[in-house]
Structure formats: C-alpha cells, structure tokens
Computed example of a mutant assay.
Amino acid sequence: MMKKLILLISLLVTISTVGLHSQTNNAQELIEEGVSLHDEGEYEEAIERYNEALELDSTLINAVYEMSLSYLALKDFENASIYSTDVINSDNEALAIGAYAVKSEALAEMDSVDKAIEILHEGLERFGDDYLLNFNLAINFFKTGDIDKTLQFVKKAIDLDKSHSGAFLLYAYALSDKGLWVQSILSFQMFLLLEPDTRRSKNAFDEMLQLMCIKKSEEPVERSFIQQQMSRRSATEPTDNTPPLSVENGLNRSYVYEAITNSLDSLINSGEEVSEFTTFKTVNMEIMKVLDRESVGPREGIFWTFYIPFFSHIAHSSYYDAFTRYISVSYFPESFEWWEQNPESAINFVMWFENGDDN
C-alpha cells in the first residue's frame, strides 16, 4: 500500500512539473508573439498577449517590461511609468536599466523632466555608468535647455558605446547650440554614417549644410528629441550669419571659415553650373585639409584624437566619393540614384567602413 502511495505522489509531482513547464513555454510563446506585434505597430494586441502570458505565469518580469514599452509607444505614459516601476523594483538587473529609460521618458512626456532626471541618476548610482542611462540624461537636459549638461552626459554615452547613431545626432545639436560648429559638422557626419537614410538623416544633413555655409534658410530645421522645431543659431552666434571664429579647443576656426568661403567663391567664379552635392563634397574636403594641417603636434580631446583622424582617413582614401554619396543619400536624389546604379561600389565602401583597411 505504501509503495502504491509513493508511486501515486511521484506521478502527481511529475504531472504537475510537466504542466508548469508547459505553462511557462506557452507564456514565453505569448511574449514572443507580443514582441512581434509590437514591432509591427500593433501595440494594443501586444499588450493583450503580455497579459495572457502573465495570467499563466505572474513571475515573468520580461512580460511586464515589454508591456511598459508598448504603453510608451501608445503614449499611455501613466501605465508606462507604472509597469516600468515594477521592473525597476524587481530583481532583474538586466531589464532594470531599460526600465529606468522607459520611466524617465514617460515622466518627461508628463512634464516631469526634473523627476525623469532624478530617476536616471538613481539608475546610475545603482548600476554605475551605462550608455542608455547617460544618453537619456543628455536628452532630458537638452529638453531643459541645459547644453553644458547635455554635452557632459552625451559625451560619456559616446565614450561608453560609439555604435549608436542617436548619441552622435544629439551631440551635433548640442555642439551647434554651444557655437562649436566645426565639431558639430563632424558629429553630424558620424551620425549620417551610422544612419544615412531616415527622415531625421535628411533633416540632419540640411542643418549640417547650413553650418557649412552652403545653404541659408530662414526657417528652423526640425530636430529629433524635442517636440518643437529649433533654429540652429546659437546664443553666441553673430547675427550676420558669420559663425563664431575665435580659437576654441586649440582650433582657430577662422582658418576653417576662410577655407569654406574661398572654396565657395571659387565654385561660383568657375563659370560652370555646380550642383549642391558637388559643392558639399568640395567644401567638405577643404575643411578636412585645414583640420589635417591644424592637427599636427600633440593634441588632446576626442575632437583631435578620434574625429579628425577618423574622417581624415576617409578623405585620403579611395572611398571619399562613395562616403559623400553614402551620407547624403537621404538628401540628394542623385546620391540615391548613384547607390542604385553602383551597388558594387556601395557594398565595397560599407565593407571597408565596417572592417577597416586590412579586410
């Protein structure tokens, strides 16, 4: 009798364990379905899947995290804040960093930018330096108009991870607003290398052309990260459209401006009709020549040790034409046509950019 009882208990435990595994597997499948629906823009349906998964297993914190993302996408910032808080309070450190970013964005959208900044600082204290937390801090300081703090945290984000295009775009905006227009031009180009063909790429290229004095516009350029449009003009920029020309970070910017104006005058006086793309390519090369010349000798700072060597290497390579086509593909129709007509050259440039000279 005792043996039969033991066998019965063992059988019940086995059945129970199998049932739990089956429920967990079903719940994970529902989460995966929800993620796919979210990626397709079906946010409400995604939330339904996450709720179904939580009914099967209430401990699945990844379902809660994914739900916070879907509520954020729906602009239901109250629920995004609630569910991201649940993730932050959980023991899942891997998801908590993302949850801090979700909660900070939800708070900022509810006009609580100061609270958003506070919660991100909490995340940094808890986890140490992290790209996402620093980047989101930079965004929130940018929204408040604190350019110095924006630069501080976006530079830290870039130091931690140089693979994210958004950080370079925000850096370009902040540098421009600070009056550091030469540095801004190079940061715009780094962004465009990483993200060449989106709507914000086109707007970024437009703003960069204005910094390069190639294009003039009375209308402000639409920017990312903020709801309102902003002019590129900084508070220190003269009103005659001449950019700041003082020596900054060891760079005499009057040399760069002189190279730009001389190049533009030469193109105008050539007697030939010159396209805006050719103007951009020519002016950009002249800027790089000046920066090359000025970088001789011991220099410190990311502008001298990373940006200038990086873009100088491209300028002196056989890929410079492909590079200018690549970063302008969202802006110039002829660049888009070039990429369609020269797929092998396009692929070779991308491979060279990703793998370096050795490959």
Score class of each variant (00 low, 15 high):
197 D>F: 03
201 S>K: 03
202 K>C: 02
204 A>S: 15
205 F>V: 03
206 D>Q: 09
207 E>A: 15
207 E>S: 12
208 M>P: 05
208 M>C: 05
208 M>A: 04
215 K>P: 01
215 K>M: 05
218 E>S: 13
218 E>T: 09
218 E>A: 05
220 P>I: 06
221 V>C: 07
222 E>M: 02
224 S>Y: 04
225 F>Y: 15
226 I>V: 15
226 I>K: 09
226 I>S: 07
227 Q>E: 09
228 Q>H: 00
230 M>K: 14
232 R>I: 14
234 S>V: 10
235 A>W: 02
237 E>L: 01
238 P>Q: 13
239 T>M: 01
243 P>H: 12
244 P>G: 04
245 L>Q: 07
246 S>N: 11
247 V>S: 07
247 V>C: 00
249 N>C: 04
249 N>K: 11
250 G>N: 07
251 L>S: 09
253 R>V: 01
254 S>Q: 13
254 S>W: 00
255 Y>A: 01
255 Y>H: 11
256 V>G: 06
257 Y>L: 00
260 I>M: 11
261 T>I: 14
262 N>R: 14
262 N>M: 03
263 S>T: 15
263 S>D: 04
265 D>Y: 05
266 S>L: 05
267 L>G: 11
268 I>D: 15
268 I>P: 00
270 S>W: 07
270 S>E: 10
275 S>W: 11
278 T>S: 10
279 T>L: 04
